[in-house]
C-alpha cells in the first residue's frame, strides 16, 4: 500500500507500510517516532515479526508487523516505552526512553 501523503486520520488503524520513508506530512518537531530493525541471533533482518509497543505500566499500546527488511515504526509520545517482538524466530524486548523526533533502536529476537 502507499503511505498517505495527507494526515493519516480516520482512514484506518492498520499499520502503514513499515518500510516506506516517513510521510512528508509527519512533523518531526511534533512527533515522537520509535523505529528500528528486528534481527535474529545471526543478525539477519526478521520480516513478519509482531512488534508491540507497551507503555510505562506495561499496557499494550500498539502493534505492527515488521517489513520484509525487518523495519518497524511507532508514533508515540516522549517517555518510557517497551518495544517487544514476537516472531517465528523467537521473541525479544527492549526499554526505550523516547524523545521528540526519531528514536532509533535495534531489537534482537532469539528463541528462549
Amino acid at each position: 500500500m502507499t503511505v498517505p501523503t495527507t494526515a493519516n486520520t480516520a482512514a484506518g488503524c492498520a499499520a502503514p507500510d513499515q518500510s516506506a520513508p516517513l510521510p512528508s506530512s509527519v512533523d518531526l518537531a511534533k512527533e515522537t517516532v520509535i523505529t528500528g530493525i528486528v534481527r535474529n541471533a545471526d543478525s539477519e533482518a526478521v520480516g513478519g515479526a509482531y512488534v508491540r509497543l507497551l507503555d510505562s505500566s506495561g499496557e499494550f499500546t500498539a502493534e505492527v508487523v515488521s517489513s520484509p527488511e525487518g523495519v518497524f515504526r511507532f508514533f508515540a509520545a516522549p517517555g518510557s516505552w517497551t518495544v517487544k517482538a514476537l516472531s517465528r524466530h523467537g521473541n525479544g524486548e527492549l526499554a526505550v526512553d523516547a524523545v521528540l523526533g526519531v528514536n532509533e533502536i535495534a531489537l534482537n529476537v532469539a528463541t528462549a
Binding site: C13, S25, K30, E31, T61, V64, R73, F75, A77
Partner: peptide, 8 residues
C-alpha cells in the same frame, strides 16, 4: 490515535 499512526 493508536501509536503506530501519525498523531496529527
Amino acid at each position: 490515535a493508536p501509536a503506530h499512526l501519525p498523531q496529527e
